[in-house]
Simulated scan of single mutants.
Amino acid sequence: YFEQHAVDCIKIVPSHWKALSDPDRLLLPGKLLIFGGEALEAAVIDNIRASGSTCTVVNHYGPTETTVGKLLHVVSRERIYDSVVPVGKPFSNTRIYVLNDARQRCPVGVPGELYIGGEGVAAGYLNNADLTAGRFINDPYFPSDGVTLYRTGDLVKYLPDGNIVFMGRVDDQVKIRGYRVEPGEISRVLSSCAGVSQGVVIAREDKTGSKRLIGYVVAADFDRDHILEYLRSRLPE
């Protein structure tokens, strides 16, 4: 499609971009490449830089619960990034906090959970009051202004230049091709399969750096096909 059409802008998950690229031909638009949905590895930027492309690259962050993007970082051609590219600074009428377990602000360089407030933040989860109460809270620093904060569950830290960098999760949630996955939920389903006395699921990276799910079981009589059929009947593909 790229060979036949002029494409100026792409917004894509990094793992999807890597799957559509190879060392000899990167998937690069003419003007603007926006990454989002999962951590952006510095190696991706190194490859784009080495290609000689002049398109602007933006790293973008915004969970579903905030409707739209809330942080962004325009990649610098001169800057050498560490292992991952920052998710950047807030925009689009956004209030950002990096808080510890006591909901106190974390100083520069100290990891904490990312809280997001401002326009676009959802009212909560439909028909799930318990989860809503745990994830959507009043702003503890300005309780009278009625702003709701969303607890992202993402572990981040401030860099000295004011950018925020993603470090992982405060729970065991992982991203698989941009989709949120709770390995603990899959482990519980796996363990409930007849013949399985214990099961656990973890995310492992393959040779391309993409994550995939691997299940381990303790079973008196291991029947792989039976277990896979059981999982398919209760979980997304």
Rank of each mutant, 00 (worst) to 15 (best):
103 R>S: 12
227 I>A: 02
85 V>N: 03
177 R>K: 00
116 I>E: 14
35 F>E: 03
213 L>M: 13
94 T>E: 15
17 W>H: 04
221 D>W: 05
35 F>D: 01
80 I>N: 08
71 L>T: 11
82 D>M: 04
131 L>N: 13
171 D>V: 15
81 Y>G: 07
214 I>E: 15
4 Q>F: 04
94 T>V: 13
73 H>L: 10
195 G>Q: 00
99 L>N: 04
149 L>V: 12
134 G>S: 01
88 G>D: 15
218 V>A: 12
48 I>N: 05
65 E>P: 05
216 Y>H: 05
40 L>K: 01
201 V>S: 09
127 N>S: 10
58 V>E: 14
176 I>N: 03
43 A>L: 14
136 F>S: 07
197 S>R: 06
142 F>E: 15
114 L>I: 06
93 N>P: 09
155 L>T: 08
30 G>P: 00
174 V>R: 06
198 Q>K: 03
19 A>F: 00
146 G>H: 05
200 V>R: 06
142 F>S: 15
198 Q>R: 02
99 L>M: 12
191 S>T: 07
201 V>R: 01
151 R>K: 11
235 L>W: 02
119 E>W: 03
121 V>P: 01
99 L>Y: 06
66 T>G: 09
132 T>M: 01
136 F>R: 01
136 F>K: 01
111 P>G: 04
110 V>N: 04
49 R>F: 05
